[in-house]
């Protein structure tokens, strides 16, 4: 398996339109998306994006439709050329690559999963899964072996000979996932990969992805417009609005400390008990520790259930790194965290 590599995006700008280069300075000087559109009829796709995506983790990029998510993820494999800025993957700058180097980079370093699956209708499931390896020039025997392995891992064993239009949407996207994984690239780009699926199937696919990630440890960039999905999948989450990043952080940061009223309005709909972790709601230990202990990554809902089962109102919380007790969690703290509203924003 390829070693995971991180992605560093610095001062990235994208202006759509014929005179993008000339308008760059105006945007740097603070012209807004609305002004640019009104005065110059250009679209400000991305405005000064800076993100550092750690290797081997899931980076979620969340935002409403039109916020620039697809534009941003397409800069990582340069399906879209930036107007200004840098995209550093490992130690290579994607922006300055020659066409040959870029093709090589796409073949070996990245793989992509698409919202509408983008499977070739004239090819079987197996032939679709082989596509990336075929493009690389891997011999037939090897690529079939790799494709079969990943088809089995996503639960499609026995469907190799079917055509995409004979499968349901969820199954088609599993093919899309298997095709990307067969590439054995350290970076996996997923643009609203699960957005076209029914809610239940969507949760299934999230589970498959999380299970796989424990083993494959790829750097996954996952785009979604759904906060629940973002909170469930993201090791780290960036929220995009009108081409700008308005908050970056872990799911705990987003839910407990939304940066502004806009994010707060999303967060309000979230099931906090399933998102907030014990170590985010605990208080420093004082006095004797309770008998029952939970891990710091335990959700408040699970902690509450444990309290009911063991007939207690206080739990000890274990630090996930050191394994030692780090604090205590009381019933009041759980209730406070679940019912809390961010001051000032509401």
């Amino acid at each position: 398996m390829a070693d995971p590599i991180g992605i560093e995006i610095r001062n990235l700008y994208k202006i759509f339109g014929p005179q993008s280069a000339q308008l760059m300075q105006a945007v740097r000087n603070g012209m807004t998306k609305a002004e640019l559109n009104e005065r110059h009829h250009h679209v400000l796709g991305l405005n000064d994006i800076n993100i550092s995506m750690p290797a081997g983790r899931i980076q979620v990029i969340m935002g409403l439709s039109g916020s620039g998510k697809s534009t941003l993820i397409r800069h990582i494999n340069r399906l879209i050329d930036p107007t200004a800025g840098e995209v550093i993957v490992g130690n290579q700058n994607v922006v300055t690559m020659s066409p040959e180097a870029l093709r090589d980079f796409r073949r070996h370093k990245t793989a992509m999963v698409f919202q509408k699956f983008a499977l070739l209708p004239n090819r079987t499931v197996l032939e679709n899964t082989c596509y990336g390896l075929e493009v690389q020039g891997i011999p037939q025997g090897k690529r079939v072996a790799a494709a079969m392995h990943w088809l089995e891992r996503v639960g499609l064993k026995g469907f190799e000979k079917k055509y995409p239009n004979q499968l349901s949407g969820g199954m088609q996207q599993r093919v899309g996932l298997a095709r990307a994984l067969a590439n054995d690239a350290p970076i996996l780009l997923m643009d609203e990969a699960f957005s076209a699926l029914d809610p239940l199937i969507r949760v299934d696919m999230q589970t498959i992805l999380l299970d796989l990630q424990k083993e494959i440890r790829k750097t996954i960039v996952f785009i979604t417009h759904d906060l629940d999905e973002a909170l469930r999948l993201g090791d780290s989450i960036a929220i995009l609005r009108d081409g700008e990043i308005i908050q970056q952080g872990t799911s705990q940061d987003i839910v407990l400390r939304p940066a502004d009223a806009y994010i707060e309005s999303f967060v309000r709909e979230v099931n906090r008990g399933r998102v907030i972790r014990a170590d985010a709601a605990m208080e420093p230990a004082s006095g004797p520790l309770p008998d029952v202990t939970v891990g710091g990554d335990c959700t408040l809902e699970d902690a509450g259930r444990l309290m009911v089962q063991s007939g207690t109102t206080r739990l000890a919380v274990r630090d996930m790194q050191t394994g030692r007790p780090a604090g205590t969690l009381s019933m009041e703290r759980i209730l406070a965290a679940i019912t809390q509203r961010a001051p000032g924003h509401a």
Partner: peptide, 21 residues
């Protein structure tokens, strides 16, 4: 479909591979 071409590009297809496949 534009997304099909994008997929072919994303996997690093050459122009010839894109045409043929």
């Amino acid at each position: 479909d534009k997304e099909m071409l994008e997929a072919a590009d994303a996997f690093g297809s050459s122009d010839w591979q894109k045409l043929k496949n």
